[in-house]
Design a protein around this nucleic acid. Sequence first.
DNA 1: CACAATCCGTTTGTACACCAACAATTCCGC
DNA 2: GCGGAATTGTTGGTGTACAAACGGATTGTG
Lengths: 138, 138
Amino acid sequence: MTQPAYSLDAQVGYLMRRANQRHLAIFAAHIPALTPTQFAALARLCEIGPLSQNALGRAVAMDAATIKGVADRLRAKGLVTAAPDPDDRRRMILSATATGQTLFERLVDEGLAVSDETLSPLSQDEQRQFLDLLARLG
Amino acid sequence: MTQPAYSLDAQVGYLMRRANQRHLAIFAAHIPALTPTQFAALARLCEIGPLSQNALGRAVAMDAATIKGVADRLRAKGLVTAAPDPDDRRRMILSATATGQTLFERLVDEGLAVSDETLSPLSQDEQRQFLDLLARLG
DNA sequence: CACAATCCGTTTGTACACCAACAATTCCGC
DNA sequence: GCGGAATTGTTGGTGTACAAACGGATTGTG
């Protein structure tokens, strides 16, 4: 028996890292004001309204330590505010500010353009297929 | 005209982040001794032999600052050694040690198992399709 | 009611990942 | 051969990401 071949370039993890690198570059070119993570958190907050910090984290798949940093930076930019929850003294309720709402609405088109450009090497059919398969790996 | 809808859950970047999170967890469960990044660098070094630090970085798509940290950690684990290049005083030539080679060879099967498990929600056909499309987005 | 289990947010530590700047070296064009 | 351009490795800074541990608050169960 020979050693099974290992081609790094054929491994999912490696390919995902490369694809993600390209995507991050496209994102940064379109939306320099926010990182993808920050944009995701802001989008969710605008989409479903005020949430506790950890709840927002769960809604965007970030653990408690990660969402804290993201929330802090969004607050520092004035896009999000935090207020204590009257019903639960542990919680801080995060809300998008008017500035945050406006910014998000103004960036929606850019966000869609980022996805478009990222997928542009594929045909329309392939894009749908890819997103479908990708969603099943989350 | 209404505002174009923006569904975070339908954006490539978000889906890739989620898929990658799942993949990282699978990797860590199979190969706790190394990170995916470290494994990739070690694999390349075993695959194509000694390389300068930056050349290795290019071979695994990591920038100079990133590969430095990875190389340092691989050296600290005794899997890689660095020697000055006699032909170019700027360069450090990195090589896998015997320990590094052996470890890599012993982990090849696990590496393939990681890819398998990551793709396991898809059928064989879908796996091939997905990898094909993914490779074109790098 | 009491107390264990859970949840909230925070901190610390490790590890990518990229940008920008830097000194030392090598390369290249003229 | 010489001087500008490029390359090598390094550092510092910012921003994810996750694990582990913590104190304080709340919930659930007996």
